[in-house]
């Protein structure tokens, strides 16, 4: 089972993301409703994929990225940032902070599935 952590403060958004990703077999989902909860879960258990929102009540996705990438154990964890902030500045900031890929809301099920596919199906060597 590939363990995915879906981080978004909106329950509806989390449900939508998970509904979209169910199209890919072999994924098991855990979710976090805040950036802090995400960091806590990531530090206590191992995950294979993170889907991360940028705007959240306590600490935002950029801070989560900065924290995660500062940890040796989590440096190569695939993280897909999914956000409403579609501007180039946000994308650059997210990528600089360590996002593996970047997807703008609204997205279609196919789009997020192909993003996740690109993250999980790459050869193990890279």
């Amino acid at each position: 089972m590939t363990k995915a952590l879906v981080v978004d403060d909106s329950k509806v958004m989390r449900d939508m993301i998970i509904a979209c990703l169910r199209g890919r077999p072999g994924l098991a989902f855990t979710h976090a409703s805040s950036g802090l909860e995400a960091i806590e879960r990531l530090s206590l258990a191992a995950f294979d994929l993170v889907v991360l929102d940028l705007n959240m009540p306590d600490i935002g996705g950029i801070e989560v990225l900065e924290f995660v990438r500062g940890q040796d154990r989590l440096r190569t964890l695939p993280i897909l940032v999914v956000t409403t902030r579609g501007d180039e500045g946000s994308r650059t900031r997210a990528i600089e902070a360590g996002a593996s890929r970047f997807l703008t809301k609204p997205f279609t099920p196919d789009l997020i599935l192909s993003e996740v596919g690109a993250l999980l199906d790459r050869p193990a060597s890279t």
Partner: peptide, 18 residues
């Protein structure tokens, strides 16, 4: 693989949250 997920199913939940 493409999945037919209709996000309009979430309309009620969307309205409640909004």
């Amino acid at each position: 693989m493409s999945t037919p997920v209709d996000l309009s199913e979430f309309l009620t939940a969307y309205l409640a949250e909004v």
